[in-house]
Amino acid sequence: MENVGIVVEDLPGAIEFFTELGLELEGQATVDQDWAARVCGFDELRCDIAMLRTPDGDGHVELMSYHTPTAIRTGPANAPANTLGLHRVLFAVEDIEGVVAGLRSRGVELLGELTSIEGAYLFCYVRGPEGIIVAFAEKLG
């Protein structure tokens, strides 16, 4: 997989959230070319994007903030984990307790608990930008 795309209203805030998790901002641009509108099925398109690379260099998160057409929300702002559709991204981390502590210092709370999965992983969910669920897993042993 190359990347996961996330539409956000607050692009700077979303960039800050993901860079604090260790992703590296590769670049930002405004996209308003005809080909982009055609790909998305719009008559016209203008959006700001930011591409962030995961620490291992193998994956990316693409953040998009639409100006034209304006973004729409089709479901609840803080949809629960069992909502149909794509709304969660998971990151493998080496120090999940440190990640959680850093997020808590920014006011981000766990959705449930930091949980051991059969002694193999520590796992948790937090609410990220625009209400998406961001999961973290630390392999144990």
Rank of each mutant, 00 (worst) to 15 (best):
L52W: 08
T68S: 14
G57N: 03
L23M: 07
A120C: 05
M51T: 12
E118M: 10
A135D: 05
T74Y: 11
L110G: 04
G112M: 04
G5T: 13
D58G: 09
V4Q: 13
G107N: 05
L110P: 02
A71E: 15
P80G: 02
L122S: 03
E94A: 07
A37W: 03
L45E: 12
E62N: 12
T68M: 11
Y66R: 15
F91K: 01
L86G: 15
A101S: 15
E44M: 02
D48P: 06
V4P: 04
G128Q: 02
N82E: 13
M64G: 02
A137V: 08
T70I: 10
H60V: 13
F18E: 02
R38D: 14
I117T: 04
W35K: 06
G128K: 05
M51Y: 01
E2P: 05
L103F: 06
L25N: 05
G131M: 07
R106P: 04
N78D: 15
L103T: 06
A37S: 11
V4Y: 07
P80Q: 00
L21K: 01
A135R: 03
G98K: 03
G141I: 04
Y121I: 01
T30L: 08
G119A: 10
P69N: 14
L52G: 12
R46L: 08
E130L: 04
E24F: 00
P76E: 11
H87I: 02
E118K: 01
D32H: 02
A81C: 07
